[in-house]
Amino acid sequence: MTTLRRIAAIGLILALGACTTYSMVEATKGYEVGDAFKVDTPIAWNKARVHSPNIELWTLDGLLQTLVFVTGVSNGDTLFSGPDEKKPKFDEKSTIIEAKAFIIDSLLTSGVLEYREISFAPAKLAGQDGFRVEFKFTKEDGMERRAFVVGALKDKKLYAIMYSGAEIYFYDRAKQEAESVISSAHFL
């Protein structure tokens, strides 16, 4: 292998490693999430840089626990950005039931394969009437995951926070901290 090829190979590895960048969210109060929420977190999280304008993603052990903030989906927007035209689009006239279906359908068109609902009930997000849905799901890797989403509609936009984790060990490990973040949320 020539020196030039070695440099190119190292450059490629470095570039791939840089595809996902993380920054630290320290245990703090009043942390601003996008233009949507202010939250308190009792523990530190890793904040991943994602390319969806309506999403902020926090992780703990890689992607074994994630906290996804949906920071205001407008009429006609998809939940996750990307080239897939099949992704559901949000309708500002949605009822709470349709808003929840929009989130679940968005997950199901973004890699979630099997979805089993555990509960669906009224709840408040940042003081706004909304819903809480808990479920289990699997992706292509076959790993069973558990999650809950607390969401609400405000000013014709959809806001939500979703916590998920691998069913075995990881989900329970940070559930309380995730609940704490969600219950502290208020709109900016």
């Binding site: 009822t95 709470i96 039931i97 609902e117 509960s119 669906f120 009930a121 009224p122 009437d129 819903f131």
Partner: peptide, 10 residues
């Protein structure tokens, strides 16, 4: 049904 409370709200 799980969504019955929402229907009642509607």
């Amino acid at each position: 049904a799980p969504d019955a409370p929402f229907i009642r709200q509607m």
